[in-house]
């Protein structure tokens, strides 16, 4: 079964073999409100953990999305660029942003698991 890990900046990464799928969490999309624009990286871009991976915009805010892990951009989800509402509707599923070819599949180990992230979000409220 694929494992999913979370960051304090509210990104998630799902490890699928030597690839990682990255998106933003439900908490993040709620805080941002209705998304109106998503800027995705170019395929082939080399990304280090903590680098800016994408930009998301609502009407009144713009935020950078940072990569939870290092790797090469293998695919981007054009559907969310065309219809940002998809991220609001299904952030952990159809609302994914980027598929990375991972440099080190174990790199995500240090991030929060689902339970730890839930506790972390509760602490923010």
């Amino acid at each position: 079964m694929a494992i999913t890990r979370f960051t304090k900046e509210h990104e998630w990464v799902r490890i699928e073999g030597d690839e990682g799928v990255v998106g933003i969490t439900s908490y993040a999309q709620e805080q941002l409100g209705d998304l109106v624009y998503i800027e995705l990286p170019e395929i082939g871009a080399e990304i280090a953990a903590g680098d800016q991976l994408a930009v998301v915009e609502s009407v009144k805010a713009a935020s950078e999305v940072y990569s939870p892990v290092s790797g090469t951009v293998a695919a981007t989800n054009q559907a969310v660029a065309d219809n940002p509402a998809q991220v609001n509707a299904d952030p952990l599923g159809e609302g994914w942003f980027v598929r990375l070819k991972l440099r080190d599949p174990d790199e995500a180990e240090g991030l929060m698991d689902e339970d730890a992230y839930a506790v972390y979000c509760e602490g923010l409220a």
Binding site: D34, V36, Y37, E57, S58, V59, P84, A85
Partner: peptide, 10 residues
């Protein structure tokens, strides 16, 4: 009345 700014930006 209130205007739909989300639609305007999308």
């Amino acid at each position: 009345r209130r205007l739909d700014e989300t639609a305007a930006a999308r």
